[in-house]
Design a protein around this nucleic acid. Structure first.
Length: 471
DNA sequence: CTAGCCTTGACT
DNA sequence: AGTCAAGGCTAG
């Protein structure tokens, strides 16, 4: 019996898998935090989080020159100093994005002049760069011109804030955008990034006691009672229709909802601490976000619960997918391990297309940028909002959405069958898009170009989860 | 498009 | 008046 470990929920598991993955990664992060090579922005801003921090112990000059003030969470010209690291010392260190000389505090971080300009141009001109080489290009002084996609990615990873770019382009004055006070990304270079994402993958691939779930033969326990066919589906490639026919497996039916609402919450095991202040199930909670403080482990645990629950659905959905049935169980596992996060985020974003400025995390539960900021989750939510905006701009319809879901977006085994399935899905999407939107011949290509953005968003999300669940 | 330098303007 | 983080300008 093949077993699957990692992010897949199991009725037998004692832990919430997504949390667990995060916890395992946490070791790495904590190590680097207490080790040396963290970037100054990380120290700078993680200390900003502590209102008790006053002045730098060393560098008295600088410390005294810099009033420590950050009222009302607004960013002022003078940022709080911190023990051991003065503003001057920070300015003397290299730009976290490319390593060039820092010219000042720009858009939320200390960076060089060129990265400041680059970030401004990219945001103001609404550029949509796409990496052609796997979104892991090194960004250095020497290479920063090579791949704007990876450079912009790194700007965001390092903490540059989109909201610091002024919509009205007014000059001068003081910026009043809110400091996120979130822990900045723990990864300061691509080597670490790669190490950590492979860690994640390995971690999820390794057998782990208490974290196994059985991949039963297809059909078992999957009631197909609500097989629906979209109205007006003429001209839809058969493959897309087949995928649409199992789409209902993503959704919660009334029975499940009733069950969830009477249960109160999901986890019978060990989640009471995490859920004690939520009166309703996370999937039903309407305003659970109100009143949450900036670091809200309860909320993160709650998110993980939602993710866990949705993962059950994803596994069932996968097993029922017509395309998947041709693929060996090993490759199914491989595909799932690589794409569970993308699937979750994508469905979330697609669901949020009708609510600009809001991400609909689950039934009746939405989050906007301001709320995300309060919880230090804005890096991820911001990207999800951007991604959703793209979906909105492209007017992605439901068939395109379900087709994109089955186009594996991450590195896949060499298996020929996987490739064939992927091509089938691509072909179906292309046929559909061309025939339904002949006035937008570029739509197919544009849709594919969104996939790397989704991957980046996931990366940010995973990092956020990892940091946030350490409490 | 890039990046260095310039201009603005709220705040101290 | 000085500071500094926004946006603007422009050679290369």
């Amino acid at each position: 019996m093949p077993t699957l470990s990692g992010p897949f929920p199991s009725p037998h598991s004692t832990f919430h898998p997504s949390l667990n993955v995060a916890f395992r990664l946490q070791g790495r992060y904590m190590h680097s935090i207490h080790g040396s090579p963290l970037h100054h922005n990380i120290l700078y801003r993680s200390l900003q989080e502590d209102p008790g921090v006053q002045y730098a112990a060393g560098g008295e000059h600088d410390a005294l020159d810099e009033p420590c003030e950050d009222k009302a969470g607004l960013l002022h010209a003078s940022l709080p100093a911190q023990p051991g690291i003065s503003r001057q010392q920070l300015i003397n260190s290299p730009c976290p994005i490319c390593g060039d000389k820092i010219s000042g505090f720009h858009y939320g971080i200390f960076s060089c002049e060129s990265c400041k300009g680059f970030f401004k141009r990219t945001v103001q001109n609404r550029k949509n760069y796409v990496c052609l080489r796997g979104a892991q290009c090194p960004v250095t002084v020497a290479t920063r011109k090579k791949c704007p996609a990876c450079r912009f990615d790194k700007c965001l990873q390092c903490g540059m804030k989109l909201e610091a770019i002024r919509e009205d382009r007014t000059r001068g004055g003081r910026s009043t955008y809110q400091c996120s006070y979130s822990l900045p990304p723990p990864l300061t270079n691509h080597a670490e990034l790669r190490a950590s994402s492979s860690d994640l993958r390995q971690g999820m691939g390794e057998p782990h006691p208490g974290l196994t779930v059985k991949l039963e033969p297809p059909d078992s326990g999957v009631p197909h009672h609500r097989r629906t066919t979209m109205p007006g589906s003429k001209g839809v490639p058969p493959l897309l229709q087949e995928i649409m026919d199992v789409e209902h497996l993503w959704h919660y039916n009334e029975m499940e909802l009733n069950k969830l609402s009477t249960e109160g919450h999901l986890g019978k095991e060990g989640s009471s601490g995490a859920m004690h202040n939520l009166s309703t199930h996370p999937l039903l909670a309407g305003t659970a976000l109100a009143g949450s403080t900036e670091t809200n482990p309860d909320f993160v645990a709650n998110l993980c619960n939602i993710a866990d629950h949705r993962l059950y659905k994803i596994v069932k959905w996968c097993k029922s997918l017509p395309l998947f049935k041709n693929i060996s169980i090993d490759d199914q596992i491989c595909l799932l391990i690589n794409s569970w996060c993308e699937l979750l985020l994508f469905s979330c974003c697609f669901r949020s297309m009708s609510t600009p400025g809001e991400i609909r995390i689950s039934l009746g539960k939405s989050i906007n940028l301001a709320q995300a900021r309060e919880m230090g989750m804005q890096a991820c939510i911001e990207r999800m909002l951007n991604f959703t905006e793209q979906l909105r701009r492209l007017r992605v319809d439901e068939y395109e959405y379900i087709a994109m879901k089955v186009i594996p977006s991450s590195h896949v085994r060499e298996a020929e069958k996987v490739r064939v399935s992927q091509e089938k899905a691509l072909k179906a999407l292309q046929d559909y898009t061309l025939s339904h939107y002949p006035e937008s011949p570029a739509k197919f290509g544009e849709l594919l170009l969104r996939i790397p953005e989704l991957q980046r968003t996931c990366q940010v999300g995973k990092e956020m989860l990892t940091i946030k669940s350490k409490d």
